[in-house]
Design a protein around this nucleic acid. Sequence first.
DNA 1: AAGGATATCCAAAACGTTTTGGAAACCCCG
DNA 2: CGGGGTTTCCAAAACGTTTTGGATATCCTT
Lengths: 334, 334
Amino acid sequence: MPVTIRDVAEAAGVSITTVSRALNGYADVSPDTRKRILEIAERLNYRPNHVARSLVRKRTQTIGLLVSDFGKSRTGHHFMFDVLAGVYERLAELGYDVSLVSTTTAQQHLVSYLDFCTERRFEGVIVMGIRVDDPYVHEVVESPLPSVVIDLPLLSDHCGYVMTDNINGAKFAVRHLFQQGHRHIGFVNGYAQAAVSADRLRGYKEGLRTVGLPFEPSLVYESDFSLAGGAQGFHELRQCYPDVTAIFFASDLMAIGGMREALANGLRVPDDLAVVGFDNIDLTELVSPTLTTVGQHRYEMGVTAAEMLIGMLERNEPPQGRLLAPELIVRESG
Amino acid sequence: MPVTIRDVAEAAGVSITTVSRALNGYADVSPDTRKRILEIAERLNYRPNHVARSLVRKRTQTIGLLVSDFGKSRTGHHFMFDVLAGVYERLAELGYDVSLVSTTTAQQHLVSYLDFCTERRFEGVIVMGIRVDDPYVHEVVESPLPSVVIDLPLLSDHCGYVMTDNINGAKFAVRHLFQQGHRHIGFVNGYAQAAVSADRLRGYKEGLRTVGLPFEPSLVYESDFSLAGGAQGFHELRQCYPDVTAIFFASDLMAIGGMREALANGLRVPDDLAVVGFDNIDLTELVSPTLTTVGQHRYEMGVTAAEMLIGMLERNEPPQGRLLAPELIVRESG
DNA sequence: AAGGATATCCAAAACGTTTTGGAAACCCCG
DNA sequence: CGGGGTTTCCAAAACGTTTTGGATATCCTT
């Protein structure tokens, strides 16, 4: 039904070769024939078939965007959406299409994610929302399909990653609290399975060392990134270590949970307890007091991942592990 | 480089026809040859080329997900992400791939969104985040490419839509506030360009009529969906109409803005001023007091849109305008 | 005028599948 | 044993492009 290159060729009285070359801007077609062909193509409303082109060129110019679990992932909406936007926009600029893939889908089709991508001839994959203990991790790392993982330090011959420099982020937070005069700084971490947790703990420790404070194990509580977990973290820390005057939470949600609990217990924030979070979610500006936090550049992460992947594909650049600088955003809470 | 059906055929000593038919479960291949072919395909790790298949079948099994403006859309993250998840998951279940398209991309490629989709031979499109005054609207409605629009009542031969029943949502809110004893109920609407605004205003009016309250124009303020806009709405309404004891906001963000302003001015919520929002964003449970709101079933919207589109494609069902029932979620604020 | 370069065009192969229209081979039945 | 049916297979066409390897015509140059 749709008009093909053959239709254009016949209407113009030339071969399809010539039409193809005219349309693609090759040199060996005379100015008038080119003009005539362009006009006719326009008049017939000809649109080249991307599928046929992909087949013969052996290039789909499509990359897969693998999201670990679309339906499930309630938390991290903001994070994912921004990264996704960054990935998409940059890839589009670079002339690539992006197709969505979810691990759940691949599973229900009884085909590995890699096979899924292979069948569609994706040229590369960007992976997000995956966790350290995810069985897909192996597949991603070992697969010959070029990939870039977001927020997980996976590096191999065909797999790079980009994530926020969580160590420095945590250090920023600690240093800031120290500069505000705090000498007993607690830390409520997320769950250990998250790749970022180890880094943030390490940054916390290094931050203390940098400013000359001792590391006190009882000042660290391992929680779960949730609102309730933050509240609980606050309580545990206050109980084990009543002198604490500042708490650094490994997520904004926990920080808000902790802060609310502190306020409910009659503490003033930041006067009695300073609070710093991590992520810079929208919510940080809407709570009261507004939340000081360590911001991640989410859109940038997506852009960076896209650029790294295309670099690997088009310029054969080696995959890297790229750390994006976090940003301390000082607001009212500490 | 990758192994083709020809490789499998040669290894099995049969024609490619037979391999194709064996792999696709046709009847006219003997049990042993089929078994042998499957084994060999497995051993060679053969993956059928989706592109070639699409070309010959003239079916890409791919639908485009058109998001009006990826980079820009800061507001509506939650909304978009949930809808997107619903669309994706359902389409995946139904055996379709989904490819992302942004209006900005199409523009920068100097090709209309329709041409973009045509070149890629998308079988249909789901459109979201588009506004009434968007120039793309015409293209979408008039295009022969089957489409389903989310949150905009666009109906034509090839274009259906699905949105929340905003009229009833607003009516629910008004009725609820009336039942709580309020007799002077204000309304802060979003900007007029949003398709939902007219409906919510209409629902507000109908709600008043239903419970027997008079419509008072000075009790309506047109704002912009933002936090600050909500605060301003609160002020305007209080000023023009001091008796107001309840305000219904056309978005949660505005409701929270208004509520904060009310609290800051010494009012108690809900005692002095009851507040109801719209959307049921995550934030509603985190503010204090928690926000009563009209919830939209975002994931469901995506699922419904996906199903309608596939119905149009596969069963030739006519496009419809489908309204999803909203849900009143009563919390502390009113 | 011959020879070479250049400009313009095209036929055919290729990409990796599916599908169409048989062709063999075998079986069963009268 | 002949004829119809069934089973199992395959060659070739088709899908809509790009690209390769010329072919023809035109234009210079000497």
